[in-house]
Design a protein around this nucleic acid. Structure first.
Lengths: 205, 205
DNA sequence: CGTACTTTTGAATCGCATCAAATCTGGTGG
DNA sequence: CCACCAGATTTGATGCGATTCAAAAGTACG
């Protein structure tokens, strides 16, 4: 299950992490439904998704899952670096591969390697902007508007890969899956959206 | 209007910034309605609010202002450190005082001072968590729920200072001010909320 | 083949947006 | 001090869009 291999690291991680930290990375596979960490646990490892999908979520008081982050490629819970406890759950929504990096090693490297610290800051800046975009999206009135905004901001070239279906997208948009299905149908009818190869594609035509 | 005084810096800034950067801070006052920066401008200074209120916002395509951040004490647009352009506007909603720090000085200090870099990362981590909380809030169904969540997460001891009135809070919650006024009225009637000294106070009557 | 899940459609209901208008408030100038 | 104005606050009526509940059809997988 766990495979200590620094040669198999994805390009972004190799550019981000110092060599000595890369050597400590452990690759693991996870299956749909697994919990990578739970709320209130003490963070010991930093996680990076390379395949599949991981969702960061918190349970509302009525038991509804609120999706805070949906990651198909990148860090999960990177803000927990200096946290005593996680403030949300990390659930595998599509089976895949996750790289674990010892938290302590990252902390030490950040203190010793200013170049690494700068790259880490750039990554956090990017995440802050992404979250601001999500806030902007959630403040929008209609489901159609939110969906198009999501495709614009998160999709490459107006293409948003799906994978686990529209349901997880609905949660990310803060709407019921019924409402999202209806919105997609209507946008397709108007020609403002297409579905192809498990992707949502925005644009006329 | 501008006053180069490092002795007058607030405690959090003195703890965060290295001395040589503190010396470059410039204190300015701004009045209601002023724009501290505009979308697409090149970031030259990092801004820190000490009095009053500044709102980070972006205009939707229908011209509605979407509030991304409401700051009464702290950095504004701290994620623009490595940005070529701002991705939103900063508007003064309550007249007050803002400290400006040359962006270049911060970048240099981050590269040279690993302790500073660590403190900066901690600040960004905090902002990421705050934004995740805001996303969680915006995903909630009802206005009442959202308001109580805001007071829980952002208010100290269940107290949320108002200042410029409920209208800016309404924008932050992503609802119309009418809906917010009604929600406040109903929560007060149920004893789940009180208004006192320009504050919203949660809790049983 | 059956089970679990996603997708899809339908109908009823509810909450919020919207439009409208009245009241209150603080600040300005006469 | 008072008249006046701009903005905030508050209440009301109406309509739309999303939620909710329900159920059927499609799909993946063992």
């Amino acid at each position: 299950m766990t495979d200590p291999a620094e040669k198999r690291l994805p390009e972004p991680l190799r550019r981000l992490l110092p060599r000595e930290v890369q050597a400590l990375c452990a690759v693991s596979t996870y299956t749909h439904g697994e919990l990578l960490f739970k709320q209130r646990q003490k963070p010991a490892r930093m996680l990076y998704v390379t395949r599949g999908e991981v969702v960061l979520q918190r349970m509302g008081r009525q038991g509804e899952a609120v999706v805070l982050q949906r990651t198909r490629h990148g860090f999960v819970g990177e803000a927990s670096l200096d946290s005593v406890r996680y403030h949300c759950d990390a659930v595998v929504t599509i089976s895949g591969e996750v790289i674990a990096i010892p938290m302590q090693a990252i902390k030490q490297a950040l203190a010793a390697d200013s170049g690494f610290a700068g790259r880490w800051i750039a990554m956090l800046n990017h995440e802050v902007k992404r979250l601001r975009a999500q806030c902007e999206r959630l403040a929008m009135r209609g489901v159609k508007e939110r969906l198009l905004h999501l495709i614009e901001t998160e999709g490459g070239e107006g293409r948003l890969p799906l994978g686990s279906g529209l349901k997880s997208v609905a949660a990310e948009l803060g709407v019921t899956h019924e409402a999202l299905y209806r919105a997609v149908a209507e946008l397709e009818k108007n020609g403002r959206l297409r579905r192809r190869e498990n992707c949502l594609i925005a644009g006329e035509g």
